[in-house]
Every structure is written in C-alpha cells, then in structure tokens.
Design a protein around this nucleic acid. Structure first.
Lengths: 145, 145
DNA sequence: TCATTTCAGAGTAATTTAGTATGATTTACA
DNA sequence: TGTAAATCATACTAAATTACTCTGAAATGA
C-alpha cells in the first residue's frame, strides 16, 4: 500500500509553498530544483491544486503559486484528496447478496477501520504542523542531538 | 491509496479458513465460489501464504488448506505482509543531502505517521476479531436492527 | 484407477504510473 | 514595446504493475 508520486510530490510542493507563505510567489522551477521533481510533472500536479482552490496562481514573469490560506488551515488530507482522491482501501462494489452470504461485511468493516485510521492522521496534520516538525528537526541537528 | 486484490482477496480467503478452523480443510474451489474469486488467481495467493507458514496444505482429493494456528493468533498484518509486503507509504530513497536542504525530513515524518497508524490497526485485528464482528452483524440482522 | 486437489511457473491484456513534450497565453520589467 | 519568465491546456508515451489466465505435473483419498 503506497502513495503515488502525485500525492507525495504534491505534499512536498505544498510544503515549499507553506515555507514561503506571505512572501513572494514560488515558481514551479524553484520547487522543481529544491525537491528534485520534473517541472513538467509538477505543472500537471498544480492544475488540480489550483482548480480545487488550495493555491492561487500568478501568471507571467516573477509569477508562481501561493497558498490560498494559511498553512494552519490546510491539512495533508486536503492535498491528498485533490491529487489522489479519497482514501479507499477497497472498492466495496461487491453486490449485497454476496455480502451477506460470504462474510463480505466482515472484511468491509476492516477496510473501513484502516481507512478511518489513515484519514484521522492526515486530517489532523496541517502544513503548519509539518513546518513546526521541520524546524524542530533542524534545531535538534544544530544542538548536535 | 488502495490495497491490491492480492491483499483483499488474501484476507477474504483467510477469513474463510478461519470460519472453518478445526474442521475439514477448505479447497480453493470452495473459497473461489463463496468469495467469487478466480480459482487460478487464488492458487497464486496461497503459494506465499503456505511458504510463510500461515496455512498448511493437504494435497490430493478432499484436500485443501487449513490455518496453521488459531484465528486469534493470526493478524491482518500477518496476511498483508506476506501478500503485499510491509506497508511503505513512500520509498524514502532520497539522498541525505537533498533531505536536509529541502525539507524532505518533514515529509518523511508524515509518511511514517501514516504508516504507523495503518500498522497499528492491522496488527491489532486478528481473524478471530473479524469472526466476532461478523457474528455480531449477523445477530443484529436477525434481530431486525 | 481416477477424480480431485495442490504445486510450479509461464504468459498476457488492461490499466496505471510517471514522466515528456508542445504550444498558447499572460505579465513583470527593462 | 519587446522579451524573458512564467502559467495553462492538452496530448503523448514508455515502463511498470495489476489482475488474471493457462498448462501441466504431482499427490492422494476413495
């Protein structure tokens, strides 16, 4: 069970925007260089992010992207929902008859428990939380811990 | 983020074995019919399950598979580890330099939190728990709830 | 013996992933 | 006003993965 690069790169890109929230817009080229992700690919990721309203774009020279709201108000779930769709461990499209007869319901409950657990984590972590974690790690490194 | 059919079918198949633990061996054909999964495909799934020691096989006519230990002692994680490998939300193969420079560590911590959350759920749920849930659902249906 | 069943391994079509490419449009700035 | 820098829209593609499908051998209970 893995996240695709869409989700992973998307979170990394949004983290870059969060680090510079309130400053100049950040271009795809900048993110591409800092996170070592293809520019073309990043462009694709930003289309849905923009359409969903998570980021605003500034076109033209010196343009780029900015978060549409403070890092505290954007969760990892917001980002992953846009780029990967909602977490669905299983498709649960089995028919009802098979369900009752075969114990499908028992496994369905399992998928729900896993999904809810993931959702709880990603809904509770904001970009600001990630920045705080990041700063803490940096400080610990400085102190030589 | 989804489980592949390997993991899903594997859990369903193991659930079938759990329902009949202590009785006759269950054949792939039986599971195939009850869960509506291709026989050929199920055969493939049982090879690693057997090699990992989670099930024992009885060859020949009237043969099949049985759990190698009580449903209480087999977790969903045991099954998924065999069929899907360990949960790895991200590959985390970025180099150390990029890590410190770009905030990779911050996203890495995120993937770890998600992974641990999933692992906690699947390690805590045994086949017996699934049977108990299943029986409860059946009872509630009878009572007309 | 024979039907039933596991076992081993090859093959394959469809889908998804991950990335590439092209050209148009917009805009800050010299 | 020209130009470089940037987004925007869309199409394309190679590689990997998924989800089976198939064939035949080996074992075994009745």
């Amino acid at each position: 069970m893995k996240l695709s690069t869409k989700g992973r790169y998307g979170v990394k890109a949004m983290f870059e925007l969060a680090l510079r929230y309130g400053e100049e817009p950040v271009s795809i080229k900048t993110i591409s260089e800092r996170q070592n992700i293809s520019e073309y690919y990043l462009e694709q990721l930003f289309a849905p992010l923009r359409k969903s309203g998570l980021v605003n774009s500034i076109r033209g020279a010196q343009g780029g992207y900015v978060l549409s709201k403070p890092p505290r108000e954007i969760t990892v779930a917001d980002i992953l929902n846009v780029l990967e769709g909602p977490i669905e461990i299983s498709e649960c499209i089995d028919d009802e008859v098979a369900c009752v007869r075969t114990g499908y319901c028992a496994t369905r409950l399992l998928w729900i428990k896993i999904r809810d657990s993931v959702n709880q984590v990603i809904e509770s972590i904001t970009l600001q939380d990630m920045i705080d974690d990041y700063n803490e790690i940096k400080n610990n490194l400085k102190k030589g811990e």
